[in-house]
Amino acid sequence: MPQLLVKPSASSGKVLDVTPHSAGWTYVGFALHRLKAGESVGAATGEREVCLVLVSGTAEITAGAKDFGAVGERKSPFAGKPAAVYVPGQAEWEARAVTDVELAVCSAPALTQKAARLIAPDTMSQETRGQGTNTRHVTNILPETDPTADSLLVVEVITPGGHTSSYPPHKHDRDDLPRESYLEETYYHRLDPPQGFGFQRVYTDDRALDETMLIEDGVVTLVPKGYHPCAAIHGYDLYYLNVMAGPKRTWKFHNQKEHEWLLGR
């Protein structure tokens, strides 16, 4: 199995690149570009659909022959909602940085013909999950209730320092609807302040997979199967951008029985 922790390969340009081939799975792709003002990046989607997420900064984006103009306003992933653009399969996109930009390229198989569209911040729902030191704040960028996409599910989460997230431990690694859906998943992690760290564990019931990873600013963790809780240490807020996809575009998870009692507290 490939390493589950992926670190940036450079400080600028395409700094992260997770493909189905490199991850050893079928559906999810994730790349991250860091651009200086005036720099640009673009690609053809081919047989995959793409969600471009402005993690930070402003970029002029064209996609599917549509010009969306300047997209994105926030200066960091901890400063409000993002902006995003959905790009269907068999289309081209380009982003030109107006300011310094961190651009996430989330991808999964395209199954039908759709139109490119802007996903504006004011259209994204937000919710707070959990309680006590399990509280975290969620922004739904491309949830399953949004019919725009064929395969992609995209969400942002901010976990305050000292809190846990993706907890109690849950998994979604069986195609067993309506009880559980099979979804591959990536976590792109950021920390505030950036010198902080956190932890994430990925493990199965039989412990055939059991890895605990040090989370530092700018890394990606892969979740091919199993439970995958994470924790932010005191003093450092944890942001992550989740990308999920599988044979069915629905998020149905199974809680680990040993820890499910926590939901009743």
Rank of each mutant, 00 (worst) to 15 (best):
S181H: 02
L238T: 06
H189I: 10
L263A: 09
A245M: 06
A116D: 12
N242T: 11
L222A: 10
M124V: 10
T123R: 08
S125K: 13
Q126V: 12
R174F: 05
G235H: 09
L153H: 13
G13T: 06
D100V: 02
K36D: 15
P2N: 04
A31L: 04
V98I: 15
R96K: 15
P169H: 03
A208Y: 01
R129N: 11
W251V: 06
R34V: 09
Q195W: 06
G64D: 15
P121I: 02
S22R: 11
F253E: 14
H259R: 11
G46P: 08
M124L: 15
S40R: 14
G235R: 03
T139Q: 10
S22N: 14
L177S: 06
T159H: 04
G196C: 04
L103C: 08
P194N: 00
E102F: 00
T186W: 07
W261A: 13
G198N: 05
P121W: 02
K66D: 15
H21Q: 15
R117K: 13
E47L: 05
V157L: 13
S125E: 14
E211H: 04
W93S: 11
L152R: 11
V105N: 03
R265C: 13
G162T: 05
G38H: 10
M124E: 10
E184A: 01
A116E: 06
A31C: 07
R136A: 07
L142P: 09
P178Q: 05
V41Y: 09
F199Q: 13
K171P: 14
R136E: 05
E49F: 04
M244H: 01
G264L: 08
S107N: 05
D17R: 03
W93I: 08
C106F: 01
K252Q: 15
I215M: 12
A84N: 13
L262F: 11
V98A: 14
F197I: 01
E94K: 14
A116L: 04
R129C: 05
T45K: 07
G226K: 04
F30C: 03
P168A: 08
G72N: 09
L111M: 09
L142V: 15
M213T: 02
D237G: 03
S22G: 02
Y240Q: 06
D205F: 00
L4F: 03
L183V: 04
E185F: 00
Y236Q: 07
V53Q: 08
P88A: 06
E260A: 14
R48D: 13
L16W: 07
E258F: 01
G64W: 07
P193K: 00
Y236I: 06
